[in-house]
Design a protein around this nucleic acid. Structure first.
Lengths: 351, 351
DNA sequence: GCATCGTTGGAAACCGGTGTCAGTCTAGGC
DNA sequence: GCCTAGACTGACACCGGTTTCCAACGATGC
């Protein structure tokens, strides 16, 4: 029977005024009201005011579903991510929403599982069902070229956030991870460290290889030769940081400083050091990357590289929704600079 | 002039097949196709199969905007929150999306500023513009009765998540914070602590007063008389945890154990203790609340109360979208149980 | 005075679905 | 064999906007 449910609460709701109501009360046609809504230039200012007055009186709000249908595009921005770090994801959401503030766009979130073989099909179904205005791709999944091609194929605009040149500037907002890591590593060298370990991100990630490249450039510039096993691999989680730190600290000689490719893993390093009775920074210096909340909240507060994720996300969102006619989107910056934040987890090595 | 932009990428996009295309190729009417899509019972199975074959061939996907317009309801669930804890918010998003998995619903996020005088107007604009299917309200803003009334007024279903009876079971998913805190406090008493401090949440929050009530019940049951100033107020942030801990640790006698009403503040307590040269748990026992990632990631790992936020969010989402005809939503549990997770931040007081 | 032009506003079609209701077809009862 | 109920299907209006096309209008050029 599939009878409509007219629950008390929905029955209470007064019928929303439509464009027809406005037109009737203002004594004009729908089209004219539509022109007012869309700020068309060819309109008598007297007529415009009259319509606007009626709109205010009625509290009329255009129905986004109807507009979406007629315009053949909706006002939804998707955020596709598989980032394991909650603070990063939330910061990105914040940045996007700052950019969307005052527009008619809304943010739809879509976490995916990078390792699932169904991931691409999942995204395809999502995109072709919803016909989003555009999507933002967060690292690490933003590095997936197949995914970007899929968006293109489905006619969905996209912007990728990343740590390197992944795409052309219209589709990219990136940060200079390599230089930032070089700076951080050089800072360790300047403090007197010669035995410096690196915990890098998983193989196959541009962010991982960019950060490693910065590390190696700084080490080389300092004339240091490091054993191969001073570079350990992690997967950006706290637990992998502990494991990688234990591998490094088991070496002889062991590193006196460790650069971890994100804050979570750096927190894992501090955790592992504490478990071994090593105190930070007296016995071991640690630097992280991202400057998420955890960096400031552990003891000792973490020296880390501040990754300007909120401005990056804001800029990426503006690229997406910026009026293409004005090329406003293209004028949004595509490269952001990370910088070292010095807190208390670094000290000169003990004599 | 406002010419349509036919950029190369959108021109490439093949026109999506519509219900008319399917109907024409299958030799039936639109309505019949619609019946197939909506699994209407009164349908010849032969016809159904024929239509389904055409749908598969064409890769037809119904346009959600058109459906939303015709049905006068869209398929968007809103998440309204002002929770300061990133992990909590992301866990809630995860729980909701688990419930929405396989449905046609999408999740739209909407952070708000509880302290802004424009908050209610902001939400009103959001709800009346988007006409969401329903919204989920996260604590602490879920405790705002005016907000819930606003949702009702705008004909928007809602479910509140909270720590106490805020509403009727159809609109609420809650946890038994009071009992859980009583259990945690009793655990401290059983370890031999008599000088136990409480860092409570901000005044006016049900979660804060529920947790405080549980604390006081346990203290009273143990026959302990505590000075008034053993209860300090925080605002659920890391920094406020540090400040409150310093106030408590400045007392004479100082507490030998501190219960903090969330993990962030508990992390602040550990931080403050370390700064004072006190080690946890040898000199000070600490218990937190929530069991977010930070609890396991600091040193020492935090004993805390596990708040089953993901199942709560999942259940809340099912309440929202569950078929009202089947009363499926109402059968979703409304009360969830928190329980103590014992890690390494509690030890008997030093003789 | 008349043709031309740019501005303004309306009628009607359209976007892609769903609801209503009437019509066809078949089976079963008499 | 006729009638009727029930199963199935389709024609058509409608959801609330936008767009196309055209007409009315006043201003201008000759």
């Amino acid at each position: 029977m599939a009878e409509q449910d007219r629950s008390s609460s929905s029955a209470k709701r007064a019928a929303k005024p439509t464009i027809n109501d406005v037109a009737r009360l203002a004594g004009v046609s729908k089209k004219t009201v539509s022109r007012v809504i869309n700020r068309s230039a060819l309109l008598n200012s007297e007529t415009r005011e009259r319509v606007e007055r009626v709109i205010d009186e009625l509290g009329y709000v255009p129905n986004p579903q109807a507009r979406a249908l007629a315009l053949r595009r909706n006002f939804l921005i998707g955020l596709i991510h598989d980032n394991p770090n909650a603070q990063t994801v939330l910061n990105v959401q914040q940045g996007i929403l700052e950019a969307l503030q005052g527009t008619e766009f809304e943010l739809v979130v879509r976490p995916v599982d990078r390792r699932s073989p169904l991931m691409l099909e999942d995204v395809r179904a999502f995109l072709s069902r919803q016909r989003l205005f555009g999507v933002m791709l967060l690292p690490p999944i933003s590095e997936n070229d197949v995914l970007a091609a899929l968006c293109d194929e489905l006619g969905c605009r996209y912007v990728r956030m990343g740590s390197a040149e992944l795409d052309d500037p219209d589709h990219l907002v990136a940060s200079n991870d390599r230089e930032a890591v070089r700076e951080a590593t050089t800072y360790l060298v300047d403090q007197g460290h010669r035995l410096i370990g690196l915990i890098e991100g998983p193989r196959g990630f541009r962010s991982a290889s960019e950060r490693r490249a910065g590390f190696e450039q700084a080490i080389e510039a300092a004339g240091i030769e490091l054993p191969r096993n001073f570079i350990a691999e992690g997967n950006y989680t706290f637990e992998s940081g502990i494991q990688a730190a234990n591998r490094l600290l088991d070496l002889a000689p062991a590193p006196t400083a460790i650069f971890a490719s994100n804050d979570e893993m750096a927190a894992g390093v501090v955790h592992a050091a504490n478990q071994r009775g090593l105190s930070v920074p007296e016995n071991l210096s640690v630097i992280g990357f991202d400057d998420t909340a955890i960096a400031a909240h552990i003891w000792p507060p973490l020296t880390t590289v501040r990754w300007p994720i909120i401005p990056m996300a804001r800029s990426a969102a503006l690229k997406l929704v910026g009026n293409p006619a004005e090329r406003k989107g293209a004028s949004e910056p595509s490269l952001f600079l990370s910088s070292l934040v010095r807190r208390a987890s670094v000290a000169p090595p003990r004599g």
